[in-house]
């Protein structure tokens, strides 16, 4: 089908959890592939061994800068893809690979892992560990509309993706501390509880209405800050939640 977009999954130093999250759209994944996406590259799912040209590359994992192949592949991904999406905590912020310090056999020199945004320009962030199937679905549908939709759909897709592009522009590091630095310290926290719900390691509790981050549990995935309604809140999109959710849900039915 000519009007599908070409997309693929590039695996850097990640755990394949992000890929499993893609697959966890279950029946919806099949619809996605039937209608919207030619899945042209994905070592885990298909036999294509070398990175082809793509409209959208979903990159999982951070880059070990002591591994030549990894560095070469991330650069190649940028050259061959119109849109690069950092999929998951490791690609966006380093996540647990931020703790890496080498010294482990059989390659003790593998000690430095960088989020992909430190090596290439990244267009869109999907933070979280693991990222959620629904968030991946929403971004994929939006990317499709952006590239193949009507003018109105393109407009909507752009508005939806804007904060995720701004996140990509904001930083390559994140952790629970962002809730302090950029929300509470900025006088913006109203104690809704989103951060605690989003945290994948139960590191956040609410004490008298405000979050407390157990920093010895935090894995630096960036989910809490991205989920916070006071990190970004784009009225033009979120107030239209009913129609947009119908669109996203309907797309993969």
């Amino acid at each position: 089908m000519a009007d599908k977009i070409k997309a693929g999954h590039v695996h850097m130093s990640g755990c394949t959890g992000c890929e499993v999250a893609i697959a966890d759209n279950y029946g919806g994944l099949l619809t996605l592939l039937d209608k919207y996406v030619d899945w042209v590259y994905d070592l885990t799912l298909a036999d294509v061994r070398h990175i082809p040209k793509m409209d959208v590359a979903l990159v999982e994992g951070s880059v070990c800068i002591q591994d030549k192949l990894s560095v070469q592949e991330i650069k190649e991904t940028r050259e061959k893809s119109a849109v690069v999406v950092a999929l998951g905590g490791c690609a966006c912020y380093g996540n647990i690979t931020r703790f890496g310090r080498g010294g482990q056999p059989n390659q003790p020199q593998h000690e430095s892992y960088l989020p992909i945004g430190d090596l290439i320009k990244v267009d869109v962030y999907i933070p979280g560990c693991a990222p959620t199937p629904q968030m991946i679905r929403n971004v994929c549908v939006a990317a499709y509309l952006l590239l193949k939709g009507t003018k109105e759909q393109q407009e909507l897709a752009k508005k939806f993706l804007t904060p995720l592009m701004q996140l990509a522009d904001r930083s390559t590091s994140a952790c629970g501390c962002d809730l302090m630095y950029d929300v509470i310290n900025q006088g913006l926290c109203m104690g809704c509880g989103s951060c605690a719900a989003a945290c994948p390691v139960r590191a956040i509790t609410h004490e008298y209405g405000k979050p407390n981050v157990n920093r010895e549990m935090c894995i630096k995935c960036g989910a809490c800050y991205a989920q916070c309604p006071r990190s970004f809140f784009n009225f033009d999109v979120i107030t239209e939640f009913e129609a947009i959710l119908e669109l996203f849900d309907g797309a993969l039915k």
């Binding site: 002591q66 591994d67 703790f99 890496g100 010294g103 390659q107 010895e216």
Partner: peptide, 13 residues
Amino acid sequence: PVRGVEKLAINKT
């Protein structure tokens, strides 16, 4: 690449 989980674990909780 070896992410070195066993070594980064040392002295964490």
